[in-house]
Amino acid sequence: MSIQHTVVFRLSHPASSAEEQAFLADARSILSGIPGVGGFTVNRQVSPKSDLTLQFSMIFADQDAYDGYNSHPSHLGFVADRWETEVADFQEYDFVTL
């Protein structure tokens, strides 16, 4: 059963700044390159109802692929080096199709 992993977040950088663009480009390059990651997208929130302004979404074929992503050195490094220092707030959601 596939898993859709979604993280909605707000960066500490201003929208459309060079810092935001660098973070998003690095995330796309690093995270989408991890084995098992499919359908990686980066989206911007357009509703004023949420202060979480960006989203990463990706699909994993199964729990093993998702677990492999979570423990992969590239994911762990990105979280430690970038996510923990540049993300102001976030929510994480993982869905399976009913």
Rank of each mutant, 00 (worst) to 15 (best):
L31R: 01
Y69C: 01
Q21W: 07
L54E: 04
T53K: 06
Q45C: 10
A27E: 04
Q21R: 13
T6W: 09
L11C: 02
S16H: 08
I3L: 15
I30W: 01
T41A: 09
A27M: 12
G39N: 12
G39T: 07
H75A: 00
S32P: 01
E19I: 06
F90S: 12
E84D: 14
Q91L: 15
E20W: 07
T85S: 09
D89P: 01
A27Q: 04
A22Y: 07
Q4E: 08
E86I: 04
D89L: 04
H13W: 10
H72Q: 08
D51R: 14
L98D: 14
S32Y: 15
T53N: 09
L98W: 06
V42C: 12
I30C: 05
A27L: 09
A18K: 14
R82D: 05
G38C: 06
N43F: 11
T41V: 13
L52P: 02
R82N: 10
E20F: 03
G36S: 05
E19S: 07
E84S: 06
M1W: 12
D81W: 01
N43A: 08
T6C: 11
E20T: 06
A27V: 03
Q21L: 09
Q45P: 03
A61G: 10
L98G: 03
I59E: 12
T85N: 08
P73Y: 01
F23S: 13
H5V: 10
F40H: 04
Q91Y: 12
D67A: 07
V96Q: 10
V87Y: 00
Y69L: 03
P14S: 11
F90N: 04
